[in-house]
Structure formats: C-alpha cells, structure tokens
Design a protein around this nucleic acid. Structure first.
Lengths: 341, 341
DNA sequence: CTGAAAGCGCTTACAG
DNA sequence: CTGAAAGCGCTTACAG
C-alpha cells in the first residue's frame, strides 16, 4: 500500500505538503499542488482513513441504531439517513439493537471507542439522562421518536394525536368496540398512542376495556397473535387500531384466517404508512408519518450538530405533522355511502 | 478521554504491559494483570479503536453492499450478517449502492481506505475480474447472488431452476400465456431467471413472446408499471412470473386496479419468499430462497476467510436449494380440484 | 509557501 | 514476565 511518505518522496516534497494539498489546498502554491496531485494519481495514492481519524480524533462515520432491521419503517429511515450521509462523505455503521437495552449499551460503548462522529437513534432505549450524558460528553446525538426534553435533538411526530385521530375516525364510522394492539412499552411513543386511543374513546363516551388492549410487540408475529386473540373473544371488537403498520397488516391476515372480512366484519387502522400498506388488500387506512423525511431530517440535524462549533450549539426539535391516510380497511366509503343512503 | 498512557502511569507499569493484558493476557503475570485490570475499570478505560486499527492495519469492520435498502430481501440478508458480525465483535458499514456501478465503486474505494476487514456484496455490480482483483489484493469478499467463478466466495441458489420450476408450475396449472416481469439485467441472476422461464415454456411447447417479457426493475413501482402494461394488452397474459416478491406483490395490486382477480383472471408467482409474501391477499406462491440464512452463511464465510492464514485460503461456493412455495396466487387448489371434478 | 518535528493512541519485536 | 523504543500513517503548530 502506498502511503503519504512515498508520495512525498516521489514528489520531492515533505509529507506536510502532501497532506496540505489534500486538506488545505489553498495554502500551497499552484505548481507544487499540481505536481503532487499528479504523483498521487500516478501512484494511485489514497489516504488511510484510520490514521487520519487518529490524528483528527474523528472517523467520518455516524451510527444508526434501530430496534428492528426487519421493519420497513426503519429501513425507510435508514434510506433518508444514507442519502445525506453519503453526500456528506460519511459512512454509516448499522446497529440492530433488537429492542434490547443491553445490546444498545454495548453498541454505544463500541461506537465511542470507534470515535463515531454522531449517533442517530430510531426509538432509543436509553433513559433521558443517559442520552443527555452521551450527547453532552461523547458525541452528537439525534433521536427519532418521542420528544422528552428540549436539550436533545429530536425529530418526531405527534403520536398521541395521531392515535387520537385514528381512533376517532373509527368512532365516527360507527364502531363501538374498538381494540388496540400496542407496540412495546419501552418506546414512549407507544404509550402516547395508547393514551391517544383511550382519550378518543372517552371523549366519545365509549368505555375503555382493558381486555381490548393487547401487546403486539411491533412485529408481524406479535401483531398476528394479538389480532387472533382479539377475534377469538366471545365479544370480539368491531375495529382494531394497531400501533404500527406491520401489525396492522398481520391483523389483516389474522382476520382472513379467523373468517373475518375487513372492513365488513372488522375494521383496521395502522400507524406509519410504510409503502407496503398501500399494496395490501384491502389497502390499509393508517396514520401517516413522513418516515423517509424523518430520516433525512435527522441526518441533517446530526451533521448540523457535528459541523457546528461545539460550544454553543443549540439542540433542535423538529416536529412533523401526522396525517390520517384513509384507504379501504375501515370501510370509509361504504359507511359514508350508507349514511347518505 | 483516558488513554493507555494514563492507565500505565496509574498502574505503575509500562504501556506495553497494559496493552498485553488486553491482547495477550496469557503472557502477563496474574498479579499485574489483576492490578492493571482494576485500574482500567477504575479509570473506565476503553481502547481507541482507530489507534488499534492503525497499528494492526485492520478495523474490525465489515461492509455490506446492497442495491436497494428498501427491499426486505436485503434486510433479511442484513439481519443474518448482523447476527454473526455482532457475535464476532465486528461492526457493519451499510452501503446502499442503488444499483449504480459508480456508487458501488466509490464505496469500495472508501472501504479500502477504511481498512475494512471484508466485504459482502448482495448482487454485486462489478465484473468478475474486478471482484477477483479486489478479493485477491484488498480484502476478503463474499458474494450473494449468481456464482460466476470458483475462486471467489459465493453463496447462491439456483435461479435458473427456480424460475424453471415456477414457470412449469404455471404451465401445469393450465396457463398458456405466461408473462415474465424481469429484474435489472445487470444482476446475472435475473438473466438466469429469464432463461429458466423461457426454457420451461419451450419444454412445454409454448411460444416465447417477447412482448410478455417486461422489465420491472425489482422494485414496487417498476413491478406495478410492468404489470399494468401487461394487463392492458389486447391479449393479456393468464399468468405472470415476477422475478422477485416485491414486484409480485405490486402485481397483485396492479391486478386489483385493472379489474383482474388473482388467481381467477390472472395467476402470479414471485421469487424470494420475503415474509410479506405470506401476508398479502391472496398469499403469494413464490420460489423460496432461505434469505436470512444466506446472509448468515455469507458472514460466516467471510469471517472464515478473514481469520484464515491468508496464504492458502480456499474460496468456497455455498449452494442452497430453492423451493417452490405454493400458496394461493396461482389457484393451485382450485385448479387441481377442477381437474379432479 | 514549505519543512522538520511532535503528536494522535495503540501494538509488538527485541532485549533483558 | 516486563520495559524502552520503533512504528502504524496521518495532521498541524511552529519556525523560517
């Protein structure tokens, strides 16, 4: 492997000069710059990132921590992150935490040792204080998920009101027994969703039955099982609000397996609006978040933080609107027609 | 940040000794080992990976290059890779090439500068020679996709026979006008699939109509458009074999939009068996590959290569069986019943 | 505008 | 079993 020394020797200059043509080209004369550049090309020299990182104490790497690599939501986020990282000449370390705090912490330690320049968490497991400590002492951080404090970068949507809106939509369509399949409780946003769901019921004078609130773990399998359980009840719900699309799609399948037609026998709303939700049958009505954009914005925020003179950087919260995307799984059209007929 | 020097000083030993307790603990006495370890803990010292990487010329990092981060297939592969990498204490650099050779090459250069210890390509864009050069001179490589030569690690399935089987299945169900939505031609496996499709038609004395072979680009949008085009024909096909599940699922949706019922008016087979294919309606019949396992095996192969004394390492090809997973989208049950009635 | 030299934080061959 | 020292390949403050 050719290194900076060889280039310097071959070009008849010092290594300092070679380094400068790469890092501060404006400080070296046109002639030597051109000459050194040509030698580099001739030897096909490329600098060793590890050495550079050691000298500069930075790695041109950011990390993305996600709880489930198999959830398309997180991959849409990842795409947003990758799009800006690549443009900024940064690389991404992908860390699948599996929703385990231990694994997340283990990753964080590794990442710090690796001198990552920043970390994006999609659904962070750490406590507020832990994140704050990490962000203030180790590396810039941005969170995707629920906002919990002002001094940490975050991009989020309003999970509470999204859930409220979804539930209200079901109520307005005339459904009374409305169930909720929840995501894991360690994600604050799921607690918000549950609260929004309950509030919507209460505001409409509908009872909140604990038996209709079932944990689904945010994945296909969990969603399927929860939906099955719901539909096997002696008095099954008329509608289900699932905390994410993966579980909502699994619910569609569980309904088929249980002999329920959607939306005729049971209505289903999801959350996220992953691209698959527009392809299933019936097409899923869901609370849409601009997922890709959230990844994009999170990355921009992170680079903003990285590039800023560290002393008086001001953390930002970016709030994005949630929007109910009405498709077919709640029987909107049919019901409305019914009302007007 | 506390470094090795501080630990050495505090422990009253040389930095060499500190380094040894971490890297060659067997060479240092029990007493000093214990003492140094306790000092490390006390100062919460963790070694700088960049410095270590520079000294050792390795980074404890592998790279995963994929053409489309939004295709669940690649994420199932990524999960397999992550599962073994994490256990081996390696990190993963995620590189989304978008199917662009330029971007892939750019990434490769960066990865080499970063001293990645190995690279896994899912559907590599490089030519055989380029890969061979990379693998022999720069870093261990393993490919996931079509096998093209023996001197490069690869894990693959038989795309040709998988396609042949899928198409034959359609023929056996009585379909005559069978179309094929292809993936991008730069992926050799797609050419194999097309060949398998054509051969199956020929072996059954069915004509191969070029108009029934349409490019779908392996993504949802491309698949949807291709399927639409097919169904708008004056003489639309009776069955469609899509080169991957994403396009097959999009085809299901296109059929709905075009007023075709699946499988009554048109049958659909996919390829991959991503988890979503068992959830859609109708459930997708597809050529199943053990995707997760392919990621797992690819990673194991890579670490085998990394750990092996480089001189006489022997590249391996791992071949996995493909299997037709019959579900509902081809009308298997109905047709069979019809035959027996 | 350029070079000599120190420094980034590690590892390991060598000597004892 | 342990330490002094060289080396990994860069960057940059300092001096000229």
């Amino acid at each position: 492997m050719v290194n900076i020394k060889m280039v310097a020797k071959e070009a008849g200059v010092s290594v300092a000069t070679v380094s400068r043509v790469l890092n501060h080209p404006e400080t070296v004369s046109e002639d030597t710059k051109k000459h050194v550049l040509s030698i580099m090309k001739q030897l096909s020299y490329t600098p060793n990132s590890l050495a550079r990182g050691l000298a500069l104490n930075k790695s041109n790497t950011i990390a993305l921590l996600i709880p489930n690599i198999l959830n398309p939501k997180h991959m849409e986020i990842a795409k947003g992150v990758e799009d800006v990282a690549h443009q900024k000449k940064y690389n991404i370390l992908l860390c699948n935490t599996e929703g385990k705090k231990d694994k997340e912490k283990e990753y964080i330690n590794i990442l710090i040792n690796r001198k990552v320049d920043g970390i994006i968490f999609s659904n962070c497991l750490l406590s507020d204080n832990e994140i704050q400590e990490l962000a203030s002492q180790k590396a810039p951080v941005v969170l995707i998920g629920k906002k919990t404090r002002n001094d940490i970068n975050v991009v989020y949507t309003d999970y509470y009101s999204g859930a409220y809106e979804a539930t209200t939509h079901l109520v307005e369509l005339g459904y009374k027994r409305i169930a909720h399949i929840t995501g894991p409780r360690w994600q604050d946003e799921n607690i918000d969703k549950e609260k929004g769901y309950e509030k919507a019921l209460q505001d409409n004078n509908l009872p909140v039955h604990k038996k209709y609130i079932i944990a689904g773990d945010n994945d296909i399998n969990g969603g399927y099982l929860a939906a099955k359980k719901l539909m096997r009840m002696s008095e099954p719900p008329e509608a289900i609000f699932a905390a994410n699309d993966l579980m909502a799609i699994a619910t569609l399948d569980a309904a088929r397996a249980s002999g329920f037609k959607v939306p005729e026998n049971i209505a289903v709303v999801g959350f996220d609006n992953i691209s698959m939700s527009a392809l299933v049958e019936p097409k899923l009505t869901t609370v849409s978040q601009p997922i890709y954009k959230m990844g994009l914005l999170a990355a921009r925020l992170l680079f903003d933080n990285i590039e800023y003179e560290s002393q008086d950087y001001v953390p930002q919260s970016i709030f994005l609107q949630t929007k109910l995307k009405i498709r077919e799984s709640c029987g909107y059209n049919k019901r409305v027609r019914q009302i007007f007929d």
